[in-house]
Design a protein around this nucleic acid. Structure first.
Lengths: 204, 204, 204, 204
DNA sequence: AATGAATGAGTTTTCATTCAT
DNA sequence: AATGAATGAAAACTCATTCAT
């Protein structure tokens, strides 16, 4: 429209605006849930008019989807970090206390619980969450496999797959525990988790 | 008014109608979630006008609360059954395959996930869920304590509390796993769970 | 239906039941207004099922109408009492303090105000209220006419009609004053009213 | 956003829309009363969707309150005009015919009657109406006081307060008369009112 | 690019009225 | 005569989405 053409689509700005919206969504969804948070809430938190948001997202559902995508990617990133470890089995075991402590913080479980519920009835969200989960699980499995091989252990892939599932269940279950039992004794839990994780990690 | 008095107020009918509504709510909440399901949906599923529902529940929130209450009581009932066992530790261990299989069925995880999300932002629901959880956890703990004593084991109550938390986390985590990984290999998972549960149950 | 026939329509009982309903309506309408009071409220106050009320009144509107009728009749009764007076002009004047005091009580103005508002937009109620008002005004006028004649005064009927209107306006205006000015100084008002009523009553 | 800033927030438009709604409310409330008029009625009369009205008023109650406020202010304005008069006592007396005529028009009494009824059971509206009434009464009293002093009369403030109450009762009573007696003979009424108002105004 | 005014379908809830018993 | 379960239409209000500017 203008002679200099600076009004042409600017992908950098678009990315920034999407991030602005998703950050706002994070705070709104955390407080009110996906369905309790209104577009007006999000637009206010994003410092942007509700109408304008529709230039970057086709619908509220798409915001939810993008938000979920962003969140499941965080888990992938955590797993990816394990790749760097020399002895991942030991590293995971040694980090248990910290990992558990993190998992029990409200910032760590509130939105995941929201996502699980949404995924349990919204097929689009389910597909996203399942795909991300598959990817992370596979990566985790391959890390553990390499880790065991490095230690000279025989690797029964099927058994390992079961152990991976169980370990992830443990950590996702902790998110539920954090919500249901705010008085939970963390130290005692860490001790119990250590013994259970030990047999799962080292297959003993 | 009648001599037999059965017309003065008929609690049976009220109970029936409430059950009718809660059954309808179960199916609607399962498909659309607490907030996605409308009173119109519920009334249609209950075969009753929306207005009439308000003769039995003061508000939609009260339906949700009653529904959640009903659901958390199912868990309590499961724990209560363990009281009957002669050697509960062994019984739990032996039943693992069946318990896990049950927990992975859609009917077992869909509504719990919904409840966890709702509880994470609705204080009334949180209070209900937490109270039920506290009760079940305590009962589970006392069952295990007695079980260990019967077996002549020393009981470290704090350690046991941590183990109880971990075991519950396991099973609640399975509900998340069931949703996120529909292709999950149950047999492998059972093997892994057995080894982890063994150390938690028998403290070895 | 029964052999003895005691189930045949019993007009006495019907009258009783209607009174029961109208008494209940009085208390409900006073608290919540004609439209704020529900049939459920009235039925509870009447100690009778809502459904049953419809055996005695065809609709809620009919209850309102009957209630209004009953109320406007009270005013007629007050006027009728004046017929007994030997010197009605003096009697009215002497009773002013008491009449004003009564008119300022909440029980005397609350429902009239409700009725005026309803009549101002509901033609059926307007017709009732206007008919009763016409009747009372005429009777009041004829009482004053006789009163003046007895005192040997000339009676200008048109002037008297204007004075009657003004006097009634006075008293109905007091109902509004009572509502709008709860701190109203009654003694001062009585003095002022006395002087104004004097010229209206005695045409001086 | 624009340099002149007129887009940042446009208070003119908001004021216009509120006026549009209040005008619509006036006609709807007049026809059906505060509770008989629905938001749908008002929105249709305002030429605006019902939902949109909530951008300008938080609730229907707030519309009623704003509407009542607007109406009671009209009375204040009438009293304020008297301040301009050189000899207010005489001015009021001379204007009686016109004032009475106005008071008897349907536009003058319909909504006041509605307001009186609403105020008689809605504390918020009662507070509004009473505050406005207090203000107008005080102003009216001070005008009369000055007027009497100008005429060299002694002013007994308590007596004057009673007379003020009586005069206002007169005019508010006329609103009821207009509704209850549509055939009212205005000329006769004016004559009667003149004699009564004379003694109240000039304290004779 | 950005606004926010505006819509209309949808939400929960209330209530006069009917009717089987 | 009497109940109260049941209905359905309407109420106030919310909100994702559109669009003129």
């Amino acid at each position: 429209m203008s002679i200099t053409g600076q009004k042409i689509w600017n992908p950098k700005r678009a990315t920034d605006r999407r991030k602005q919206v998703l950050d706002a969504a994070e705070s709104c969804f955390g407080m009110k849930g996906f369905h309790g948070a209104s577009m007006a809430d999000i637009s206010k938190a994003a410092g942007m008019s509700a109408g304008h948001i529709y230039n970057y997202f086709a619908s509220k559902d798409e915001i939810i989807a993008a938000f979920v995508q962003q969140n499941v990617e965080r888990v992938s990133a955590i797993v990816r970090d394990l790749h760097q470890q020399d002895d991942p089995l030991q590293a995971i075991y040694d980090d248990l206390e910290k990992s558990i402590h993190e998992d029990l913080q409200v910032g760590y479980w509130k939105l995941p619980l929201e996502i699980y519920a949404e995924a349990s009835r919204n097929p689009k969200i389910a597909a996203l969450a399942q795909a991300a989960d598959r990817h992370s699980s596979n990566e985790f499995l391959s890390i553990l496999k390499k880790g065991r091989q490095k230690r000279g252990m025989q690797v029964d892939e099927l058994a390992l797959a079961g152990q991976v599932e169980a370990m992830i269940a443990f950590f996702q279950g902790l998110q539920v525990r954090a919500m249901l039992n705010p008085q939970l004794d963390e130290a005692a839990l860490v001790e119990a988790m250590k013994s259970a994780m030990y047999v799962l990690l080292f297959d003993e």
